[in-house]
Nucleic acid binder design. Structure first.
Length: 478
RNA sequence: GCGGGAGUAGCUCAGUGGUAGAGCAUUACCUUGCCAAGGUAAGGGUCGAGGGUUCGAACCCCUUCUCCCGCUCCA
């Protein structure tokens, strides 16, 4: 395994600061002092987050002929969570050390933790210091609430901790409605909620988050092949569609003793964060566990009849489940660069042009009416094709930097020559190069530049091991 | 819950008993006219909250609230 790339240790702090300042994301409810581990997405963040979500939708639904989308309710019949095992087992049993180290442990991991420290698995007390441990307390990670006006046990419901169960529960209905034959997938994006004991690392682990999940139903025996297929495809998506550098990504197969009770094979897509490798997506072969559980609990038949072979079976499921917020954070961190330009620090987000909040910024060289009028109407015109922003405040250099900082790949500048030659300059973010193009063909020129920008993003994602902290050579022309 | 860190301007922070500050950011005007430009001016702070000590508290003492980081959590 290659050594991990060096990562600036305070990168997260600088990025979080930038994100608040520029409106990507920030703590929720801040005027009331905030609330632990919950976040709001600001104007730029909401735009970018939607772009990421759309890229997934495009790749997983629109460009495929074997996936159907659904959107299921966040609150479901509570029996769903009994059948899925979440009521019984989606818990963290915790014990606290009352000895010298005062650490908190997972009660069900104590044996492993002791063994890692060279102690017998059944040794008494704290794995670290041997101190007395408290009784295990059970924390169910599901948020509870009540349905209807009476807050009694009968009305007890849960906020979903994963979107997946919606796909399982609706499997037969989707098959019926779409006349689908296996193999095919059901996909959905949506919020999930987990009352995490210890959320951490900004928006990486939060209690409210958005999942992008797809359950791919297939014939038993073909599941491992499909698992392999989806591992490849999902890695491709992170790198090629989102521009995340391959050198910072890895696909890690779970060890046998690490597998969930329902899975025979799971691989995680992981990114190298400043705090270590973190999971962006889990690709699990869930076998027929979920459908079978719901068949038993509901009494409904969720099996599938294969007409070609006259076989009836319960489908196996391969599930690629990605975290939108984690992907969002990953793309920001992966794109963040600081470099020296003419003795000044330049902060630039080398975001993929399909991810960046804006694609094209339209800037009059100065705030003279004859320039701003042209620039404003140009921006209006380009809106039909691109995500555009107009900015006329302050000096042109400052505005270029401001756009760099939020990852806008292209800036169009209207100058005094424009009034004579009917042409404008397009300035590109990464190389800071400029070309002059006639206004008549501006849409096509922008499109060409974005194609080039996508190619550059792809090239960087595939080949660049690590550019953090390195200075790119500034280039200039025109 | 435990341990650590931190709450002062939109952001980053300085200010350890004597009139609340800096840089950046924001707004307006002037100048300039292609890579974080110069000038002038303006706006913006119950110094997290409460109590105490003191002639006087951002600063000392007590209480409290909140956020951040870690405690290996599987999106």
């Amino acid at each position: 395994m290659p050594p991990p790339d060096p990562v600036a240790p305070d990168l997260l702090e600088r990025l979080v600061s930038l994100c608040k300042q520029r409106g990507f994301f920030f703590g929720s409810s801040e005027i009331y002092g905030g609330i632990n581990a919950l976040y709001d997405y600001g104007p730029l963040g909401a735009r970018m987050r939607r772009n990421v979500r759309n890229l997934w939708w495009r790749a997983m639904v629109e460009l495929r002929d074997d996936v159907e989308p659904i959107e299921t309710s966040i609150i479901m019949n509570p029996q769903v969570w009994v059948a899925s095992g979440h009521v019984a087992t989606f818990t963290d049993p915790l014990v606290d050390c009352t000895g010298s180290c005062r650490k908190r442990w997972r009660a069900d991991h104590l044996g492993d933790l002791r063994r890692e420290r060279g102690k017998p698995e059944d040794a008494p007390g704290c794995p670290e210091c041997g101190g007395r441990l408290t009784e295990a307390r059970q924390f169910n990670l599901m948020f509870r609430t009540h349905l209807g006006p009476v807050a009694d046990d009968a009305a007890q419901v849960y906020l979903r901790p994963e979107t997946a169960q919606g796909m399982f529960v609706d499997f037969a209905t989707v098959v019926q409605a779409t006349r689908r034959r296996l193999p095919f997938g059901i996909a959905q994006q949506g919020k999930s909620f987990r009352n995490e004991i210890s959320p951490s690392n900004s928006i990486f682990r939060t209690r409210e988050f958005e999942q992008m999940e797809m359950e791919f139903f297939c014939k038993p025996g073909t599941d491992l092949d499909w698992h392999s297929y989806w591992c490849t495809e999902r890695m491709r998506w992170w790198i090629e569609d989102c521009g995340v550098r391959a050198g910072r990504l890895r696909l890690r197969a779970h060890d046998e003793d690490e597998l969930s009770h329902y899975s025979v094979a799971t691989s995680d897509v992981e990114y190298l964060f400043p705090w270590g490798w973190g999971e962006l997506e889990g690709i699990a072969d869930r076998t027929d566990f979920d459908l079978r559980s719901h068949m038993e609990a509901s009494g409904r038949d969720l099996s599938y009849f294969e007409t070609e072979t006259n076989e009836r079976y319960v489908p196996y499921v391969v599930e690629p489940a990605a975290g939108l917020d984690r992907g969002f954070l990953t793309m920001l961190m992966d794109a963040y660069h600081e470099e020296e330009v003419r003795g000044e620090k330049r902060v630039v987000l080398r975001l993929h042009p399909d991810v960046s909040p804006w694609q094209v910024a339209v800037l009059p060289l100065s705030k003279k009416p004859q320039l701003t009028e042209v620039a404003r109407s140009l921006e209006q015109r380009l809106r039909n094709r691109f995500r555009t922003e107009y900015d006329e405040t302050q000096s042109i250099g400052r505005r270029y930097r401001r756009q760099d900082e939020i990852g806008t790949p292209l800036a169009i500048t209207v100058d005094f020559d424009t009034l004579d030659d009917n042409a404008v300059t397009i300035r590109e973010r990464d190389g800071m190069t400029q070309v002059r193009v006639p206004i008549d063909t501006l849409e096509q020129a922008c499109e060409d530049q974005l194609v080039a920008s996508r190619a550059a993003a792809l090239d960087r994602a595939r080949t660049a091991a690590d550019q953090a902290g390195q200075s790119a050579q500034p280039q200039r022309q025109g």
